[in-house]
Design a protein around this nucleic acid. Structure first.
Lengths: 71, 71
DNA sequence: TTTGGTGAGGTCTAATTAGGCCACAATGGT
DNA sequence: ACCATTGTGGCCTAATTAGACCTCACCAAA
């Protein structure tokens, strides 16, 4: 979940969006997005889809980060 | 969300699991899984991960169904 | 007929998310 | 110095999920 948040932030940065811009793009409060990126909340399926909309990406892509290790 | 549920069911069937078997494999009540497959509830991120565990699949795979139409 | 497994859906409580708003510190321009 | 932006986190209420348990109809096999 923390990993997910980090990945989300990475994707957002790549798209050059600020939290407030992204907030506008997916109708999710900016403070909430910040919390998600920090891994502070356990988002629901619909929230995941909204985030994907803002990033103009496939929902599955948000989950495609190193599943584990990494090393 | 409904699409997601249908896909979940498909994956479960492919793996030859009954609701109760899957329930045991991911520690989610079988009645809840049934509701998810029916698209009746908006699952959280952690629930999504648990389902992936039971299916021995990457979480992202659960989201890889025809994003839209389908014809 | 009885037993066992399956999908389905109802109920209840506790915990958590959703959603929205606000304030603050830090930063970067201008 | 000033102003705007950004990230962050607190706060609140309403709504929903989580989690657990139970019951039922249905079907198939013994």
């Amino acid at each position: 979940m923390k990993r997910f948040g980090e990945n989300l932030r990475k994707l957002r940065k790549e798209k050059g969006l600020s939290l407030r811009e992204m907030s506008y793009a997916c109708s999710i409060d900016n403070s909430k997005i910040a919390k998600i990126e920090k891994g502070m909340i356990n988002i629901t399926f619909t929230t995941l889809l909204q985030l994907a909309v803002a990033l103009e990406a496939q929902p599955a892509m948000l989950l495609e980060y190193e599943p584990e290790v990494t090393n």
